[in-house]
């Protein structure tokens, strides 16, 4: 379930190349990123809830991010940037693969959305600080996770909100996310390296070292009846809020 290409100084070139190749069919809901399209509403439900709780907003408003700056790290072709822009944010999307950024900018233009897309390393950019920082399914692709989390912390405004999601490192995720999902083509081959997955406790420690506090994680699970949805079961994939200590 990759969104993203890594944006740390420790980026793996082969990862960027893998996702860059997928750029052309990012936006095809039936294409190879189909799983991401189905995952998007689930993530957004969590993010919307976190936004409403963090800034104590009316849950019915259509523009909860009006007047706020948002940064999506490892933005891919903009599947998350575009919803954040519709919710009212001034959005910056960063991705290491230029092909992704090209696809993202083209799509945003077609949709009539004003989003600042930048290809390259987050660390080398002077992008300022953001009220909302997101990195969906990115940290598992990063070699130096401590350095990556530190980069994210630098971009977060003092009273800002961060949301991260990543696969858990469990027997279940090894079987389902890496083995079965790639075998049946639910996610493209070469997407996941199970040994790089981070458990919730490891993530908590990484964040803590960067002066950040992790909220209670929610699982993203799958059931044949309900499809993808937020659950209490963290064994496959989880999503968390993060704030400054």
């Amino acid at each position: 379930m990759p969104d993203a290409t890594v944006t740390s100084v420790t980026i793996r070139p082969e990862e960027a190349a893998h996702f860059g190749k997928l750029a052309s069919d990012w936006w095809d809901p039936k294409g190879r990123s189909a799983m991401l399209h189905r995952l998007n509403p689930v993530r957004l439900e969590f993010i919307r809830h976190a936004i409403d709780a963090h800034w104590a907003q009316d849950i019915r408003t259509m523009k909860p991010l009006a007047g706020k700056r948002a940064l999506d790290v490892g933005c891919g072709a903009g599947l998350l940037c575009e919803p954040l822009a519709r919710l009212g944010a001034e959005v910056t999307g960063v991705d290491a693969a230029p092909a992704n950024i090209e696809a993202a900018a083209l799509h945003a233009q077609g949709m009539g959305l004003d989003i600042a897309y930048r290809a390259g390393e987050l660390g080398t950019m002077d992008a300022g600080r953001f009220d909302l920082v997101t990195a969906m399914e990115v940290i598992e692709h990063v070699a130096d996770k401590g350095a990556f989390v530190h980069e994210l912390a630098l971009r977060l405004a003092p009273d800002g909100l961060m949301v991260l999601s990543t696969p858990n490192r469990t027997a279940a995720s090894r079987l389902l996310l890496v083995g079965a999902a790639e075998a049946i083509g639910a996610v493209p081959h070469g997407t996941h390296d199970w040994d790089d997955f981070v458990t919730p406790e490891e993530l908590r420690q990484l964040l803590s070292a960067a002066g950040l506090t992790m909220g209670a994680p929610r699982g993203i699970g799958f059931s044949p009846v309900h499809g993808l949805r937020l659950t209490g079961d963290l064994s496959l994939n989880y999503i968390v809020t993060v704030k400054r200590d």
Binding site: P29, H37, R38, N40, P41, L44, E45, R48, I59, R60, T61, M62, E82, P83, L84, A85, R86, L87, M111
Partner: peptide, 13 residues
């Protein structure tokens, strides 16, 4: 509900 999540009105979901 989709708009409250920032989804496009024509989103397949």
């Amino acid at each position: 509900d989709g708009m409250r999540l920032g989804l496009d009105l024509g989103d397949p979901q």
